[in-house]
Structure formats: C-alpha cells, structure tokens
Design a protein around this nucleic acid. Structure first.
Lengths: 351, 351
DNA sequence: CTTTAGCACTCCGCTAGGCAGAGTGCTAAC
DNA sequence: GTTAGCACTCTGCCTAGCGGAGTGCTAAAG
C-alpha cells in the first residue's frame, strides 16, 4: 500500500462517516454516536475507529458536539460538504417528478395564477415554506396599453405583456379629462409601447412626451411617473409565499423565538426580495446553509433558490426556506425540477 | 335593604370579579387567585368572599380551574360575558385612531393595494393575524372590457370596474383569431357590459351570445365560460392575509401543534373564506370566541370580523384571528374602526 | 502507522422525594 | 351575607441518585 492510497482510503472513510452523521441526524433529529453509526451504516470498521474519524471531522469543522458526551451533529460546513459532493447530481423521485409534470399541463393560466400555484406546489413537495418571484424588470414585451376613466379625477392605466401579465396603476388627474382625451392617449401609448420591453416603457414615454397634444401633457406626465414608480415599487407584490405553516412543524427548529423571527422575515418581503433577486443572477440552483446566508434572520435556516428562464433568458426566481436540518437531496431536486418545468411552461405560453 | 337590591349587589360584584379575572388573565397569562384579585382590583371585599363568588361563577360556567389548587381562568363563556357587557361600546385609543385615519389619506391606490395594505394595518394595530376579503360578487360596475391577443392560440380578457379592480383571464382559442376579430369582440363586449354589475356579466353575455357574428361565436363562448368560472373561482385570490407570525408570538397559545393547525387553516384559504363570507351578511362586528366557531380548527382561537360597506352597501369583510386570550376591547375597536374607514375610503374613490 | 479493545469518565435525561407557595373549600364565628 | 381560620391539595422547583449513551485515552494488535 502506498501512503497515497492509504490517505485516500482514510479520507474516503471519513467522508462516509460524515455522510452517515448527516444522514442520521437529518432522519432522526438525534445526534449520531459512533456505535449507532457502525451498526446502521455498513462502515466496516469498529466504533473506536469511527470515533477517531469523528474527532478529526470535528477538528476540521464539519461536525460538532452539543455537549461532551453526546453524539455528533453536522455543522453548516458539514451539510455544505455533502451537498457539494453530489454537485448537481440530484434527482426527484419518479412520483414527484410526475406530479410536477402533471401540474403544468393546464393551459389556461395567467401569469399570476401560475406563479402562485407554483409556490403551493413547491411547498407541498418539500414541506418547507416556498416562494416564487417575478421581477418587475422582466424582458416580456408589451402587448397592449389602455387608459380607462374611473371617476372624475381618477383613471386607470393598464399594461398587458405577452407573458400574460397585467399591470394596473391608478392615475390621479389634476383636471378632468374627457373620454375622448383618454381614448386618444390610449391610442398614442399603444403606438409608442406595443412590442417594446416593459422595463423600457418609462424611458420611451419620457422621450416622446413632447409629441403629445397639449391637452394630454399633464396626463402623460402622470402616466410616466406611475410607470416609473410601478417598475420600481411593484416588486414586493410580485412575491408569492406559501407553506409558512411548515416552519412551525415538528421541532426541527430549536426554539420558538427563532421561528417567529423567520416567519416575520418572510412576511416583511424586503429580505425575501433581496435573496430572490440574488438568485436571478445565478445560473443554477443555489444553496445557502445557515451562516452562509447574508441576512441575520436567515442564519438559522437553509435557503435554496433557483432562477427560472424562458428559452434561456431568466425571468424570475423561486425557492424554499427551511431548517438547516433538511433532506437536501430531495429538496434541491424539487427546487431544480420545479424551476425547470415552470420555465418550460411559461415558454409554451409565450411561444 | 330589599332582597332585590341585595341580589343586584351580589350580581354586580360577581360581574366585577369576572371582569377582574378576565382582565388579570389577559394581561398576565397567569390564572387569577382570590388574594391577588382583591389586592389589585379594588373589589372592597375579602378574599374569602371572592372565593365564594368564584365558585358560583365556576358553577355558572364562566371560569374554570386548570387544576384543583390554581387560580381561575376565563372560559369562552367568560370572555363572552364581558364582551357582551360592553356591547358596541368600545373605542380606539386616540393615537391608534389617528394612525388609521392617516393611513387612508393616500389617494393613488388601486383596490388591490388598498386591501393588502389594510390587512397589514389591521395586523400591526392588533398584533394578530389579519385578513381582508372582497367577494367576487360585488356590486361594482364594469367600466371597460378588452380582449387582447397574446400568442397564436391565446388571448387575454380584461375587465375593469369602477372600484379600480382589474380582473384578467386567459382565453384559449381553438382557431386563430385575427387582431380585427379581437378588436370587434372588444367593442361588442364593451357595448354589452359597460355600466353593468360585474356579477351580472355572465348572464348578459349568455343572453346576447347569439348576436355575435359567426366568426366570433366560439371566441364568445370561451369568454362566457371564463367569466362564469372567474366569478366562481377567483374568490380565493381575493383574500389578503398578513401578520401570521403573530400567531407564534409568546406562548399565548398553549401548544405548538395548535399553532401549526391554525396557521395551516389560514393558509388553506377555504376555511377563511367561509368565515369571511359569513361576515358579509352580518351588519356589524362579530366576535366568535373559541368554541363558538363553527370550524373545528378555529376552536382554540377568537375570530373577530366586520363587513365594510360603500355608502351603506356591503362590499367585503375583514377581521383578525388570534388566541382567545386577547385584549378584546382594543381588538374589537380596531376591527370596527378599520372596517369603517376602509369603507369611507372606498366610497371616496368610487364617488 | 492504522485499527481496535478496554476502561474510566462525563454528561444527559429520568425519576423520586422533599419543600415552599399559592390557592382552594369548608366550617364556624361575626 | 361576609369574614377569619385552617386543613388540604396541587404545582413548581430543587436536589440527589442512577442508568445509559457516548466520548477520549491508552495500550496492544495488525
């Protein structure tokens, strides 16, 4: 035996021990002891050897002791190790995969429904809180614009995109506008904007504001400010959150106060938005385990996100939030699969 | 002293004791003992007397023992008694009332925003989970209808009402329809529906389906089915829920499993919808304490709801869900005030 | 040098017992 | 009808003791 081979062997076994610790703890919630481990996972060595390996793994920061004489529990780094080991090599169970596929057959969905339902699906697949996000600045193109009078000083601007998204904004008018004025404005806006990207709308309107007849100037200004604001502000409303109750499930979280904080954080969409916005620029599934999360409130959670894309261009992101103690394999697979299928479905709609 | 007067006195004092028990328990979460009660609430009698009264109150079902030698805790009936005693005589604190008023000044709100934000407001005022509901079958009238082509076999039907509500539905087309066809259809639908009540739309379209040119028949049929379905199905999406994290707050609920169930129930909007639909037909604030709730899952909660109305006609309902141990006075006042102010605000918008 | 058996040690979790405190219900007196 | 007194009960908390699980170390075996 060359020393190299020995080293290999040792490391291989150590990795196996780490995998066993993670697996055991994820399943039972109990810290794993050396004896239990050799009994239940065919490690082929004695408990004493496993103990030595465990000590080494602990030194390396992969596992830790709750107290002197308890078994070992994975640290965030420990989970990280096993997750990295598979790389992207995770697959959804047959039945779950079918369920996802079935789910996206229904053709009669507007964007909003599809996203909301996707959050539900993801939550029920993973048993964690699930979240789906469409950024305001997507590349969908404008199909139609309409200005409709509601009341003497109020009108409504409606923008429809080819992905089936409908934006509506209330306009407040200084002076009354006749039905004719509004009709004219609708026509002009349609000429300007149809076929353009939604995010370019404010720029285009700004540029061509001068072309409007003088009676429509102030109205046009209002449209512009609303469009600008809309692009910036509507983001928070484009987040669909489902399955929060899963956070309270079983004692996977150590203490209640933590749960409250996390649920609170989820509700105050700000944080959620940051996380999901980050996912937009990633190319595949991203897993943030415990302390790897930037946000303080999420340090006790694992957040798994993925972007979803229509024919190669990212249009949104989705993900789940759960305890660090989770079945990473299943969960990553579910997030991946749902993001892919959602993308396909949206692609079919926009085709 | 006539015996009558004596009886009065006794009952008065008993009521005072009951009020004290409720007040003490709501504030501290501790069962109230006779000694503590006379010390902190100027009952003017000895602990022994209070004990006698407590025994009587227990016989009457208003309070109960957690165990032989602990203080008393209000039963659902106990809470009910004190709530009934004030009747509608509850008022919001000056500062809270101002906050609500301030809140509704912003004029640039579409219906959806207003309702979502109202849920947030209510939740933050009461520290309970808050919910706001607009039924699909409201009396708002249709302002505009538009059919827009999205993709070869897909179009979108958009309906705008005078309350600023925008309904959108995807249409799936058997055969391609030209832009012209869609334009014609838009015009015809507008003629039929503008000024009519939203809930009447399916009926009207059904009646006049025959008038459509033959090329638009199948398209019209699709519109009809989508309208019917929309009126029936969209209800679930017209529920805004905020502040769920408050349910996990402090140990106001005895056990965790209960919390999970309740949060789960809130998320599966079905139950919520039933409760809120009931509130629609009531004329003022309704308080359901614990076992008074019809739904099994809500038996450990108090649900307080109120309808809100635009100029006298009810258009929706809202409310909160919290533990039975709550500050009823504040909470009822908040629900009442918010429902009233929301109604006013909507009235101004629709004016 | 790695693996293993043996062993002393640590710490948790559970149970039992004891004790103080809060609160009750009853009785008898005011 | 109200009150004081008293015996009683039950909780909550602390302590001590014990079994079990698990460790770390040492020394021997491979």
């Amino acid at each position: 035996m060359t020393p190299e081979k020995d080293e290999e062997l040792v490391n291989d076994r150590r990795a196996a021990v780490l995998r066993a610790v993670v697996s055991h703890y994820v399943r039972t919630g109990e810290p794993a002891g050396s004896k239990t481990l050799v009994e239940r996972y065919k490690l082929g060595v004695s408990p004493a050897t496993v103990r030595n390996d465990m000590a080494a793994l602990e030194d390396a920061g992969y596992i830790s002791h709750p107290h002197t004489s308890a078994g070992r529990v994975p640290t965030d780094a420990g989970y990280r190790y096993v997750v990295d080991e598979w790389g992207g090599d995770v697959k959804l169970s047959r039945s779950d995969a079918q369920r996802v596929e079935q789910f996206y057959i229904e053709p009669r969905w507007a964007l909003e429904d599809a996203l909301r339902q996707t959050a539900s699906l993801l939550s029920s697949l993973t048993h964690h809180a699930a979240v789906v996000f469409t950024p305001a600045l997507d590349r969908s193109t404008i199909r139609h614009v309409e200005v409709i009078g509601l009341a003497p000083h109020r009108a409504m601007l409606i923008v429809v995109t080819d992905t089936g998204r409908v934006e509506d904004h209330v306009l407040v008018l200084d002076d009354d506008a006749s039905e004719d004025d509004l009709g004219t404005l609708s026509r002009l806006l349609n000429e300007m904007l149809t076929g353009e990207a939604l995010e370019d709308a404010p720029v285009i309107v700004a540029k061509r504001l001068e072309e409007l007849p003088s009676t429509l100037k102030s109205l046009g200004g209002e449209v512009l400010s609303v469009l600008r604001q809309g692009v910036a502000e509507r983001e928070g409303e484009r987040v669909f959150l489902e399955g929060t109750s899963n956070m309270v499930d079983e004692q996977k979280f150590s203490d209640l106060e933590t749960v409250r904080q996390v649920i609170g954080a989820l509700e105050h969409r700000r944080l959620l938005l940051e996380v999901l916005a980050e996912a937009l620029s990633s190319t595949s599934v991203s897993v943030k385990i415990g302390s790897e999360n930037r946000a303080e409130e999420m340090r006790s959670c694992t957040v798994i996100t993925a972007p979803y894309a229509i024919e190669g261009s990212t249009v949104g992101s989705l993900g789940i939030v759960g305890p660090t103690r989770m079945d990473y394999r299943r969960t990553i697979a579910a997030v991946y699969e749902v993001s892919a299928q959602l993308g396909h479905m949206l692609g079919r709609l926009a085709q």
